[in-house]
Simulated scan of single mutants.
Amino acid sequence: MNSPIVIDRNEILKRYKTIDKYTHKGIQGHALLVGGSYGKIGAVCLASKAALRTGCGLVTAFVPQCGYEIVQISVPEVMVVVDDHEKYLSEIALNLDVDAIGIGPGMGQKMATQKAFHDFLSNNNLPLVIDADALNILSHNPSWMALVPPKAILTPHPKELERLIGKWHTEEEKIGKTVVFSIVNQVVIVMKGAPTYIIDGQMIYRNTTGNAALATAGSGDVLTGMITSLLAQSYKTIDAAILGVYLHGLTADVALPETGYQSFIASDIIANIGKAYLSFGL
């Protein structure tokens, strides 16, 4: 197994692209966040707002009807498209010109939602981030991995990873099984944890930012929005994953002197993305 490449500031600056001063929202990328169900619309709000803060020009959220007003009021900069169903996603029908899609936050696992996800995978060839309930649906239906486009980014926390690759007994075995899963399915895996590893086939990257403050509800939803945003801005898949994870962790490092560990919440990640970017000094 290859020893991990350490993701530090120098590694990030090789990948980070500065903004053209003549750019406009139409060429800064359009990200789509798909998810939400009754009682879990907040996940899509967090992901959508994070996508905007990370720099893409346009963001659309696709949610059940019960999420329409919530997203419009919570994040007025985000456009909203709704499913036919009131409380959960039943058909992911998109007639939108978008550059990247993040799917799963708050989505739930209703049978109609599972079918909608299957049909979506069958028809999608855009850059994709798969998280949360979308990962759990895949673990229930392993044959659907064949429908996942090459170079999609999967962002499991430890329990979601276990459902995908099976149990492990050592850290080395966990990474080994994840490498095999990545190679077989041609996907990039963000193994969320302390530290977070990014697996791209045989290539293993270890993130160096972040602290215990990130162990809070919604933290993963924010990461999904950030990585989807970077994909929409035309970053290469592996660079979007690496930069997204690094920035996400850096927000907690930047905020810690003011928030401490206990009072830091997912919205604080979003609020500190700007400071994290500024710390690059470019």
Rank of each mutant, 00 (worst) to 15 (best):
L58S: 08
V59F: 04
V59Q: 04
T60H: 04
A61C: 13
F62K: 04
F62H: 03
F62C: 01
V63A: 04
V63M: 11
Q65R: 14
G67K: 12
G67S: 11
G67M: 09
Y68F: 14
E69V: 11
E69G: 12
I70E: 15
V71E: 12
Q72H: 13
I73D: 07
I73L: 12
I73R: 15
V75W: 07
V75M: 14
V75Q: 14
P76V: 06
E77I: 01
E77N: 13
E77T: 10
E77G: 04
V78D: 03
M79F: 05
M79D: 05
M79V: 02
V81A: 14
D83F: 11
D84Q: 13
H85I: 06
K87I: 12
K87M: 12
Y88E: 13
Y88T: 15
L89A: 07
S90W: 00
E91Q: 14
E91L: 09
E91P: 01
A93S: 13
A93H: 07
D97H: 11
V98N: 02
V98T: 08
D99N: 15
D99I: 05
I101S: 00
I101V: 15
I101F: 02
I101C: 02
G102K: 06
G102F: 07
G102R: 03
I103W: 09
I103V: 15
I103F: 11
G104D: 09
G104N: 02
P105A: 05
P105W: 10
G106N: 00
M107A: 09
M107G: 10
M107W: 10
G108H: 06
G108I: 02
K110L: 04
M111P: 09
A112C: 04
A112S: 09
A112R: 05
T113M: 02
T113Q: 03
Q114E: 12
Q114K: 10
H118L: 12
D119G: 01
D119Q: 08
F120W: 03
L121I: 05
N124S: 15
L126I: 08
L126Y: 08
L126G: 00
L126D: 01
L128V: 10
V129K: 02
V129S: 03
V129G: 00
V129N: 01
D131W: 02
D131G: 09
D133V: 10
A134D: 01
L135I: 13
L135D: 13
L135P: 13
N136Q: 06
L138Q: 09
L138C: 05
L138P: 11
S139E: 00
H140T: 09
H140C: 14
N141E: 02
N141A: 00
P142Y: 03
S143F: 08
S143M: 06
W144K: 02
M145C: 02
A146W: 03
A146E: 11
A146Q: 09
V148T: 09
V148I: 08
P149I: 11
P149W: 01
P150N: 14
P150A: 04
P150G: 01
K151E: 15
K151Q: 13
A152R: 13
A152Q: 11
I153R: 02
L154C: 06
P156S: 13
P156K: 11
H157T: 13
H157L: 09
